[in-house]
Simulated assay, not measured.
Amino acid sequence: MTKRKIRGMAILLTVLVGLTIGWSIWNGKLYEYDHEAFQAIAESLTFEKKIPMKMPFKKLEVSQRNLNKVEEKLNVTLTNVNKETMEVYIGIEPKESFDGLKGEEVQINNNRGTFISEDSGKRILAWQEDDVHYQITYFYKLTPKEVSKKTLIRMAEAFA
Rank of each mutant, 00 (worst) to 15 (best):
M155E: 00
L125F: 02
I116C: 07
Q128R: 10
I153A: 05
D119L: 08
R7F: 15
V88T: 12
Q128N: 12
D131P: 02
K5R: 13
K149Q: 14
A126N: 03
D34K: 02
Y140F: 11
S24H: 04
K102M: 07
Y140L: 03
N66T: 07
I153M: 05
L125N: 01
E71F: 15
I41V: 06
L13D: 02
I41N: 04
K102W: 03
F139E: 12
G28A: 10
R7Q: 13
I41C: 07
T79K: 12
N110R: 15
E72A: 06
E71R: 15
V132P: 00
V132T: 09
T151N: 03
I90M: 01
E48S: 13
R4V: 00
G22T: 13
K122Y: 07
K3F: 02
L125E: 00
S117V: 13
E118G: 06
D131A: 09
G121Q: 00
A10E: 02
G121R: 00
K102I: 10
G18M: 13
K54G: 07
K150F: 05
S24L: 09
I124S: 05
L67D: 14
E118W: 11
Q39H: 14
M53K: 15
F57V: 00
K5M: 08
K141N: 13
I136S: 02
